Simulated assay, not measured.
Amino acid sequence: MSERTVLVVDDEFAIRDMLRMALEIVDYRCLEADNIQDAHAIVVDQRPDIVLLDWMLPGGSGIELLRRLKRDETTQEIPVIMLTAKTAEDNVIQGLEVGADDYITKPFAPRELIARIKALLRRSGVGESTDRMQVSELILDGKSRRVFLAEQPLDMGPTEFNLLQFFMSHPERAYSRNQMLDQVWGANVYVEERTVDVHIRRLRKALQIDGKDYSGVIQTVRGTGYRFSSRGVPTD
């Protein structure tokens, strides 16, 4: 199983430092942010397995970031635990209604929080290894960064590999060009939307070898963008 990544979003350095040490002891990789803008960029760029989100933050509340994550199909499945000093019942209800998966109030014991993280990851299935993915005769090996079709290695560039890995991790969902730019290129990289179309054409070409054409798994969704679908697998 690959290393789990946890994003801690809190404006108090002491809290982040304490959580980082507690997480590293149990072999979790820890990312940190002290405001919602930086936190959102990290979520888009690095796709943490879970987010620990403080309610009160500079430049906007954690609830604002939570709403943003849960509105976006590409981030809505990332589990979120709210960390806050707010204990009123209506605050708890608000956080859970917006989409928080769990809620823990300050001060808290790090061991209790780690236990909740582990339970939530088990329940959600987030963080399970996607090193090897397969659709019929198409196999993607994340560790070696190689793709095989009918046991033959395919020749594709790093961006096409990253696109295919993203698609195979999120099958049967339509994504806009902007969403793909955020997820594959990164939120802080500025490239034009038509760049996606160029790399989609290259990816489709790479998915064609003698006697096999899997280019149909990358489907154009009119008015939206693209999706990966096993329905595009050719039938013999």
Rank of each mutant, 00 (worst) to 15 (best):
L53V: 09
L149E: 07
A150E: 08
A115E: 12
D54C: 12
L140H: 01
Q76M: 15
T84M: 08
L120I: 11
R67I: 06
R67T: 09
L138R: 03
E64S: 13
V26Q: 13
C30F: 08
L149T: 10
P79K: 02
Q46G: 08
W55T: 10
Q76L: 13
P79Y: 00
E32W: 02
L121V: 04
A119Q: 14
I63F: 14
S136C: 11
A109L: 10
L113S: 09
I78R: 02
P58L: 13
V80A: 04
A39H: 01
E151P: 01
L65P: 00
A119C: 10
G142E: 06
A88W: 10
G95V: 01
K143L: 15
D34T: 10
A150I: 07
E112H: 11
L57W: 04
E32A: 15
I93G: 03
R146P: 06
V126I: 11
K70F: 07
Q94F: 06
D141P: 05
V135W: 15
T87H: 12
L149G: 08
E151R: 13
D131Q: 13
K106S: 12
S129T: 15
R67F: 07
Q37E: 13
V92G: 01
G59I: 05
I139P: 03
T75I: 02
H40G: 05
I114E: 02
E128P: 03
A88L: 15
L113P: 12
L96K: 08
L140P: 00
V43T: 08
L65H: 00
G127I: 05
I104K: 04
L138P: 01
T75Y: 08
L31P: 05
M56L: 14
D101I: 01
V98I: 14
L31M: 15
D38S: 14
R145D: 07
G60S: 04
I104A: 06
R67Y: 09
E128T: 14
I117M: 04
G127R: 00
P153G: 06
E151Y: 10
A150G: 08
V126T: 11
A100F: 01
D54N: 11
S136N: 13
Y103R: 03
Q94A: 14
L140N: 00
D27E: 14
I104T: 05
G142K: 00
E73T: 14
D27Q: 15
I93A: 14
L140R: 02
M133N: 03
R122Y: 10
Q152G: 02
E77T: 13
D54Y: 06
G99V: 05
V44N: 08
P110H: 09
I139Q: 05
Q134F: 06
K118N: 15
P110N: 03
R145F: 07
I25N: 10
R132G: 05
V147Q: 01
G60L: 06
D49T: 08
Q76I: 09
P110E: 04
P58K: 09
D141G: 07
I81Y: 01
N35Q: 10
A109F: 09
V51F: 05
I117E: 00
P107Y: 10
I93K: 13
Y103L: 02
E64C: 08
Q37G: 00
L65R: 00
I114Y: 07
I63P: 05
N91D: 15
E32P: 06
E151G: 11
E97R: 12
L149C: 05
D102R: 03
Q76H: 14
R29T: 11
